[in-house]
C-alpha cells in the first residue's frame, strides 16, 4: 500500500449563507495522479484555495502526511510541499523565465541580505547551485531555450509549462494543477499528458488536478473525485466514474437521463 500524502476531512466553507464546499473528504496517495472534476461553479478552485490557505475553511481539516495545515499560511504551505498553478496563468510576467523559477527556490537558499548585497561567498555558491538547478528544471520542461526571455513573451502553451516548472521549483510533495489543459489544442494536450506523467515519475510528486477536458482526465488520472454544488457526488477509477449516472446528470443535466430512460 502506498502511504497517504494529502488528506482532506469534512472540508466546508460558507460564503455568507452559501455553502461553496460542503463536507468534502478525499485523499491522495503518494505518487498518485488524482483528478477533481465537476461542472462550472462546483467549487473545484475553491477547494484549491482552501488547500493552499487562500481561504480558511469554516469546518474540516487538511493533513499533509499526518500534519494539519490549517495554522500555516499560504507561503508556509508551499514550503511544506504544496505547490500550485493557476487557472488564469499568473506568471511574473516582467521577469525572465529563469527568474520565475528561481523565485520559487527562494527558501532553498539561506544567504543573508548582507551577503546578497555584498556578493559574499554564500551568495556566489548558492546562486550558482540554484542557477544550475533552474536550468535543469527548464530543460526537463523544454523551456531552456527561453531562459532569458521575459515570461510575458512566451507562447501560451509554454507559459502553462513555465507555471508548472515554477511550482516544481519549490520541491513540492503534492502538485496542484488548476486546469492545466485549458486553452490548449489536442496536440498540446497530448504533450501535456506526457509531461505530467513524466513529472510524477521524475520528481516523485503526487498530482491533484482540476480539469474540464474529460478525455484528458480519463487518460491520466488513477482516481477521480466528482464535485457538484460543493459536494462530492461520486468517486472511483475513471471507468467507474464515467458510467455513474449521478455524474452524467451533473454534467448533462437531469433531463438527459430521463430522455434516455424514455
Amino acid at each position: 500500500m502506498r502511504p497517504i500524502e494529502l488528506q482532506v476531512e469534512d472540508l466546508s466553507i460558507y460564503f455568507g449563507g452559501l455553502s461553496a464546499v460542503e463536507g468534502v473528504s478525499f485523499y491522495i496517495k503518494k505518487g498518485q495522479i488524482v483528478g477533481l472534476i465537476g461542472p462550472n461553479g462546483a467549487g473545484k478552485t475553491t477547494i484549491f484555495n482552501l488547500l493552499t490557505g487562500v481561504y480558511a475553511p469554516t469546518r474540516g481539516d487538511i493533513y499533509l502526511e499526518d500534519k494539519s495545515l490549517l495554522r500555516y499560511k499560504t507561503y508556509q504551505r508551499c514550503q511544506m510541499g504544496l505547490a500550485r498553478t493557476f487557472q488564469n496563468i499568473r506568471l511574473f510576467k516582467d521577469l525572465s523565465v529563469i527568474d520565475n523559477v528561481k523565485t520559487a527556490m527562494n527558501r532553498q537558499m539561506h544567504y543573508s541580505l548582507i551577503s546578497g548585497v555584498f556578493r559574499g561567498p554564500g551568495f556566489r555558491k548558492e546562486e550558482r547551485e540554484i542557477s544550475h538547478r533552474a536550468h535543469e528544471l527548464l530543460e526537463v520542461m523544454g523551456l531552456d531555450g527561453f531562459a532569458h526571455d521575459y515570461a510575458r513573451n512566451l507562447p501560451y502553451g509554454q507559459q502553462r509549462k513555465l507555471e508548472i516548472a515554477r511550482a516544481l521549483a519549490a520541491k513540492p510533495r503534492v502538485l496542484l494543477l488548476d486546469e492545466p489543459a485549458a486553452g490548449m489544442n489536442p496536440t498540446e494536450t497530448q504533450e501535456l499528458l506526457a509531461t505530467v506523467k513524466m513529472i510524477r515519475d521524475k520528481f516523485e510528486v503526487s498530482v491533484l488536478l482540476i480539469e474540464h477536458d474529460m478525455n484528458f482526465v480519463m487518460d491520466i488520472c488513477e482516481y477521480i473525485f466528482v464535485l457538484d454544488y460543493g459536494r462530492i457526488i461520486s468517486s472511483g477509477e475513471p471507468a467507474e466514474v464515467r458510467n455513474d449516472p449521478r455524474v452524467i446528470e451533473a454534467y448533462l443535466g437531469g433531463d438527459a437521463l430521463e430522455e434516455e430512460d424514455a
Binding site: 507561503y75 508551499c78 505547490a83 493557476f86 506568471l91 516582467d94 521577469l95 527562494n106 511550482a167
Partner: peptide
C-alpha cells in the same frame, strides 16, 4: 520583484 509582478503567485511560490 515577484511581489510586484503578482502577489498571489509570489505567496503561492513560498515567498513570505
Amino acid at each position: 520583484l515577484a511581489i510586484r509582478e503578482d502577489e498571489i503567485a509570489a505567496e503561492s511560490s513560498g515567498i513570505n
